[in-house]
C-alpha cells in the first residue's frame, strides 16, 4: 500500500507571531513546528504501513527550511520526504496549494491513500484536503475518526459528522482528513532521528511539477486578503460572588430565559 501524508509547518505559537503594534505577522524568530493535527495523519499512515505493508511519503509545501521538519517526520518512520518549494508558490491560497500538492502526487504516481490532518492551526481553514482530493479526482472523507479495515481496494471508515458518527465504505484511492481521536502519535526513536538527519529530502520547484493548470502562488489564487487586523479580545470583566448572583445577571442579560422561549431551535 502506498500512502501520502500531507504535512504543514506552522508557527510554534499563534500568539507570538503577531506584532502587537501593527498586527502584522512576524515571520522571523518564531520556530516552525509540524502542524499538531498532521502528526495524526503521519501516525495513521505509519500504522497502516505496519499493518498492510507498503511505503509512506510525507509531502509538504513551504519555505526551504521546512526540509528540517520533514527530516523529523522521516525520523518517525516515514520512508521519504518531499518538499515543494519555489518563490512562484508564495501567496498561494488553499486551492492553489492543493494544485501544487496534486501535481506532486501525480508526478509520483497515484497512491492508494492520501492522509491529511483535519485542519492547520495557523490558517484554520480545513480546505486543502478536500480541494486536493478534487484536484486528484478521487473521493474524500473529512473528519475520519477510525479506519476500520482496508481490503479489496476499499476502506471502511468512521467519520464524525455534525450529529454523530457515520460509517462509510470508500473505494480507493481516496483522501481522508483525520481527527486526533484516530490514534496517539509515537515519539521518534534514536535510530529514527539519526536516519532522519541523514535522509535525503527531495526538493521540487515549479519547474519539476509540469503544467499546474489554474495557476499557483498569488497570481493563481482567487482569494485576496484585503486587510488584516488584530481584534481587541479584551473584555470588561466583572467579579461575581457566586451562583445566585450569576443567575440574576444571566436573567437580566436574557441569556437563560426568553431567548430560548422565543423559539430559536
Amino acid at each position: 500500500m502506498r500512502i501520502y501524508a500531507c504535512v504543514k509547518q506552522v508557527p510554534a505559537n499563534n500568539e507570538t507571531r503577531l506584532d502587537p503594534v501593527t498586527g502584522t505577522l512576524i515571520r522571523e524568530g518564531s520556530p516552525g513546528v509540524l502542524n499538531p493535527l498532521d502528526a495524526y495523519a503521519v501516525e495513521q499512515a505509519l500504522r497502516l504501513k505496519e499493518q498492510y505493508g507498503g511505503e509512506v511519503s510525507a509531502l509538504s509545501m513551504g519555505v526551504p527550511g521546512v526540509r528540517d521538519m520533514l527530516r523529523r517526520v522521516v525520523a518517525l518512520g516515514v520512508d521519504r520526504g518531499i518538499l515543494l518549494t519555489d518563490r512562484a508558490f508564495a501567496g498561494s491560497d488553499t486551492l492553489a496549494t492543493a494544485r501544487v500538492l496534486a501535481a506532486a502526487v501525480n508526478k509520483c504516481g497515484m497512491p492508494d491513500l492520501v492522509l491529511c490532518g483535519r485542519v492547520a492551526s495557523d490558517g484554520d481553514t480545513a480546505q486543502v484536503g478536500p480541494m486536493l482530493a478534487e484536484c486528484l479526482g478521487i473521493p474524500h472523507v473529512s473528519d475520519v475518526a477510525c479506519i476500520e479495515e482496508i481490503a479489496r481496494g476499499e476502506a471502511r471508515v468512521r467519520r464524525l459528522g455534525d450529529r454523530g458518527y457515520h460509517s462509510l465504505r470508500v473505494r480507493l484511492p481516496a483522501l481522508f482528513t483525520v481527527l486526533k481521536e484516530i490514534c496517539v502519535p509515537r515519539l521518534p526513536s534514536i535510530t529514527g532521528v539519526l536516519r532522519g538527519e541523514k535522509a535525503a529530502i527531495a526538493v521540487w520547484g515549479r519547474a519539476d511539477l509540469g503544467s499546474l493548470e489554474g495557476g499557483v502562488g498569488l497570481k493563481g489564487s482567487n482569494t485576496r486578503v484585503l486587510r488584516s487586523h488584530r481584534p481587541d479580545l479584551r473584555v470588561k470583566t466583572r467579579a461575581v460572588a457566586g451562583a445566585r448572583d450569576l443567575m440574576d445577571i444571566l436573567r437580566e442579560e436574557n441569556l437563560i430565559a426568553e431567548d430560548r422561549v422565543r423559539g430559536d431551535i
Binding site: 508557527p11 499563534n14 503577531l18 505577522l25 484554520d124 486578503v225 484585503l226 488584516s228 487586523h229 481584534p231
Partner: peptide, 8 residues
C-alpha cells in the same frame, strides 16, 4: 486566523 489572533 491564527487562533483568533488575527482577523482578515
Amino acid at each position: 486566523a491564527f487562533g483568533g489572533n488575527l482577523m482578515a
